[in-house]
Amino acid sequence: MTVRSTARMIALPDSDARRGQVRWAPIRSLWTIGMTGSALVLAPLYMTPGAVALWLMTSAVTLCLGHSIGLHRLLIHRSFTAPLWLERVLVYLGTLVGMAGPLGMVRLHDTRDWAQRQVACHDLHAHRAPLLRDAWWQMHCRLDLTHPPRFEPEARLCDDRFLMWLERNWMAQQLPWALLFFWIGGMPWLVWGVPVRVAIGVTGHWLVGHVTHRRGPQGWTVDDVPVQGHDLPAAALITFGEAWHGNHHAWPDSARLGIEPGQHDPGWWVLIALRRMGLVHDLKEPAMLAPREGLHRVVKQGDALG
Rank of each mutant, 00 (worst) to 15 (best):
D223W: 04
V208W: 06
P176G: 09
W192L: 09
F151Y: 13
Q228K: 08
W251E: 13
R168H: 10
D159C: 14
F181C: 05
R256I: 10
G219F: 00
G209V: 02
P153G: 14
L237G: 14
L175Q: 09
T212S: 05
D231L: 08
W137D: 01
E242S: 11
P233R: 02
Q174S: 08
A250F: 03
G229H: 03
V202M: 01
M164K: 12
D159L: 13
V196W: 00
T203Y: 04
L257A: 15
E152V: 14
D253A: 15
G258W: 02
R150D: 10
H230Y: 15
A234M: 14
G186D: 07
T239Q: 02
P226M: 07
E242T: 12
R161P: 08
N247I: 07
P188W: 00
L180P: 00
G193W: 00
G193C: 04
L180C: 08
W206L: 05
M187P: 02
A172G: 10
D160Y: 02
D223C: 09
A236P: 02
T239E: 01
W220Q: 01
L190A: 11
L166H: 06
I184L: 15
P149Q: 06
V225A: 04
G204F: 02
P176F: 02
M171N: 06
L145W: 02
H249N: 14
M171Y: 05
G241Q: 10
C141N: 05
F240L: 05
L232W: 05
R215I: 13
M139C: 13
H213I: 10
H210L: 11
H245Q: 15
V208G: 01
A199F: 00
Q218W: 04
T203D: 03
D265K: 04
N247P: 13
N169D: 06
C158Y: 07
D223F: 04
V202G: 01
V227K: 04
T221V: 11
F181T: 01
H205C: 07
S254I: 11
G246A: 10
V211L: 10
E167Q: 15
F181K: 00
A236V: 08
L143F: 07
H264P: 05
T212H: 02
V211C: 11
G219Y: 04
Q138G: 03
W220F: 15
R197T: 07
S254Q: 12
A155E: 14
G201V: 00
L145S: 04
A236G: 08
Q173C: 13
Q173M: 12
A155W: 06
G193S: 06
A250V: 05
D223T: 15
I259V: 14
S254E: 12
A199M: 07
Q218L: 08
H248L: 10
I238H: 01
F181A: 02
V194H: 00
L257S: 05
H249R: 13
E167F: 11
R142C: 11
G201W: 00
H230N: 06
L232G: 01
D253H: 15
W251Y: 13
D144Y: 07
I184M: 12
L207W: 05
P188N: 10
G246I: 09
V196H: 03
P261E: 08
P149N: 05
L157N: 06
P148N: 12
W244R: 12
H245T: 11
H140P: 13
M164V: 07
F181H: 00
W220A: 02
R168Y: 12
P261I: 12
G209E: 04
P233E: 09
P188C: 08
G216L: 01
